[in-house]
């Protein structure tokens, strides 16, 4: 009832408008919802980020890091290109589940992976990304556990492939 009290109080200022609303839509409805519906231009409260977001950010950052490494070291293309492709496959599936179009580029702060271009640094980034996916898998609802488990395992195989 605290909420209702506050709403009534703030609406009391516009006395005549409340009267108009009251005749139009019923006094009760106006008292409960009038302010929110007609007066407020506040933005919607921000949606809590999907727990898949950090896993997606690392997938995109790693894919970009491999692309960059191949540019600077073309000899590594055969070895690195399939790993980048795995991350892009993950990113597409994660974006679909989150329900947002895939960002074209990772956020600059997404992960240390963005700066990793040597094989050793890429390997470390894969291991860090594996830990993110493991943590997400452990607390995920059942319908996401398999997906996150496969992503975690895939990142571990990447670290192995870079040994």
């Amino acid at each position: 009832m605290v909420l209702t009290g506050a709403v009534l109080q703030s609406c009391d200022m516009g006395h005549s408008r409340r009267w108009v609303l009251g005749t139009a839509a019923g006094v009760g409805a106006a008292a409960l919802t009038g302010c929110g519906l007609f007066d407020s231009d506040d933005p919607e409260p921000p949606k809590a980020p999907d727990p898949l977001e950090p896993v997606l950010a690392e997938a995109l950052a790693l894919a970009a890091a491999y692309d960059q490494a191949v540019v600077t070291q073309p000899g590594l293309r055969t070895r690195l290109a399939p790993l980048a492709e795995d991350h892009r496959t993950h990113a597409a599936e994660l974006s679909r589940l989150i329900g947002e179009p895939m960002p074209s580029a990772p956020a600059p702060s997404a992960s240390a992976a963005a700066a990793a271009t040597t094989v050793a640094a890429l390997r470390q980034a894969e291991q860090a990304a594996q830990r993110t996916a493991v943590a997400a898998c452990k607390v995920a609802p059942a319908d996401r556990a398999g997906l996150l488990g496969s992503i975690a395992a895939c990142r571990a195989t990447h670290a192995e492939a870079l040994r």
Binding site: T78, P82, L83, E85, D86, T89, H90, G146, G149, S150, A153, C154, T157, H158, A161
Partner: peptide, 11 residues
Amino acid sequence: VSPATMAWPGR
């Protein structure tokens, strides 16, 4: 065997 990895181990 190349590639040595797959996107979805276990799937």
